[in-house]
Amino acid sequence: MRAATLILAASMIAATIGCGGDPNVPPLGTVHGKVTLNGQPVDGATVEFIPEGGRPSIGVADANGEYSLLFKADVPGAVIGKHAVRITSQRSRSGGEGDAPLVEARAETIPAKYNDQTTLSVEVTSGDNTHDFSLEGKRSGKASSGA
């Protein structure tokens, strides 16, 4: 009987505080999808979900244009609710030290209406969310700052 009571108490505590959950992390939904520009995957695109209030979530697309968002370095997902979405391809040169691969700088190739002047918005719900972005338009002519 005592063992059953201890198990019940432990279960109640875990349910109250979450199993290893961070009390500073709000309710999240997992988010993944694919980014294409004129039908082609955008390798290395940065996808940022910016909630109306709170911390943004960020992901980077792979060679197939597929991304998954992270709320924090080790916490996947995005805050539940409405988000503005910014998608960029511009990046500064980085890496090359030690084992870090060298990543060359790249000018922005995605039209401003999807990043600096974004018109994209989505709703993140509890559970699994798939948000694909089929972007269209001329590649941006914005020069890289190299910073």
Rank of each mutant, 00 (worst) to 15 (best):
L6Q: 11
I7Y: 09
I7D: 07
A9T: 14
A9H: 06
A10M: 13
A10P: 10
S11M: 09
S11K: 05
S11L: 14
M12Y: 04
I13E: 01
I13P: 10
A14W: 05
A14R: 01
A15H: 06
T16D: 02
T16E: 04
T16W: 09
T16N: 05
T16K: 09
I17G: 03
I17M: 05
C19N: 15
G21A: 13
N24Q: 04
N24A: 01
N24S: 14
P26V: 12
P26M: 03
G29L: 06
G29R: 01
G29N: 01
G29M: 06
T30R: 12
T30A: 13
V31L: 10
H32N: 03
H32S: 14
H32P: 03
G33P: 12
V35M: 03
G39H: 03
Q40P: 00
P41W: 02
P41T: 00
V42T: 08
V42Q: 12
G44V: 09
A45C: 10
T46H: 07
T46D: 04
T46F: 06
E48W: 08
E48H: 00
F49V: 08
P51A: 13
G54E: 00
R55P: 01
R55L: 08
P56F: 02
G59A: 00
V60Q: 10
A61W: 05
D62Y: 06
D62C: 15
N64R: 15
G65S: 10
S68I: 04
L69C: 02
L70G: 04
A73S: 07
A73M: 07
V75I: 11
V75Q: 06
P76T: 01
V79I: 12
I80R: 00
H83R: 02
R86K: 14
I87D: 05
S89H: 15
Q90F: 08
Q90G: 12
R91Y: 14
S92T: 08
S94M: 04
G95R: 08
G98W: 02
G98V: 09
G98Y: 01
D99F: 12
D99S: 14
A100D: 11
A100G: 04
A100N: 10
P101S: 07
L102N: 10
V103K: 13
E104W: 11
E104L: 15
A105E: 14
E108S: 15
I110V: 00
P111F: 09
P111E: 03
K113G: 03
K113N: 13
N115P: 08
